[in-house]
Amino acid sequence: MKMTDGYVDKQVVPKKKSQLLKDIKKGWQLYVIFSLPLLYILVFKYFPMYGAIIAFKDFNPSLGIWGSPWAGLEHITTFMQSFEFWRVMKNTILLGIYQVLATFPLPIVLALSLTYIYNKRFKRAAQMITYAPHFISVVVMVGIIFIILDPRGPANSLLNALGFDSINFMGEASLFKSIFVWTDVWQNVGFGCIIYLAALAGISPELHEAAIIDGASKLKRIWHIDIPGILPTAIIILILNMGGFLDTGFEKVLLMQNPLNLKASEVIDTYVYKVGLTGMVPQYSYSAAIGLFKAVVGLILIVGSNQLAKKVTKQGLW
């Protein structure tokens, strides 16, 4: 996906221009084919970007987006100086980093473990079972979490049987992030290992044969052949996850929230939702300003991590 072709056109304008018209005329059907998706993108993706300027206005529905009076940076500075700002930022960042760090290495471990299973039926069963939770909806997933971690649920029965006191898991703010992250690992580690299985399958078997003849143990082969073989894939995935870490499972956070854990569970997205859509008086502009703040930080992170990916592995997402 090269984006640089455009500026070549400028140098030979007249000839190119008629060529351009000719090309468009010749390929008009392609534009017809493309028109619906393009219309969708413009209406449902770019119009909201325009609508985001209400972050710099005092939005009044009767005056419309453009007609509402300007407010400048007032909303963003109000947010940054508010009591909520640090709490919400801290939760968003900590949850995101915790999530990325915990969900990164385990799919690799699972993929390595699966490739050294030679019993085909066991391997297939293990794959099928570990991929399955990925397809559980987030509502059902949180429902299962509540059931398992219920004060009288199986997790506490186990604790009691081992001689520990019961824990009110969902009521402990300090446990929120761990519960969030490790249940996510439970749900997605299997599906996440698929890409590494593919990378491992791409490693030349001759390397392994040569290593076996030289008497390398399996652990040695993992360390010297498999890990270097999947390293480029792993680095790309890690960096891209870092780039998107502000978006960490907001729908799940919202479902898992309760008044007792709010201190640890309020993230930017849930805050935007509450301020903007659930209050008695919807604060559209203020909420949009917080959302825009997050979108800009997110964009910087993604572009930055892509640059990093390019530097480290000579290939980025674009």
Binding site: G51, A52, V272, L277, A295
Partner: peptide, 22 residues
Amino acid sequence: IFMFLFVFTMMFNGGLIPMYLL
């Protein structure tokens, strides 16, 4: 240009409130 228009929406969006208003 179209490709850029499409891919850019993966990195940046107007946010929840403008979408709701739309």
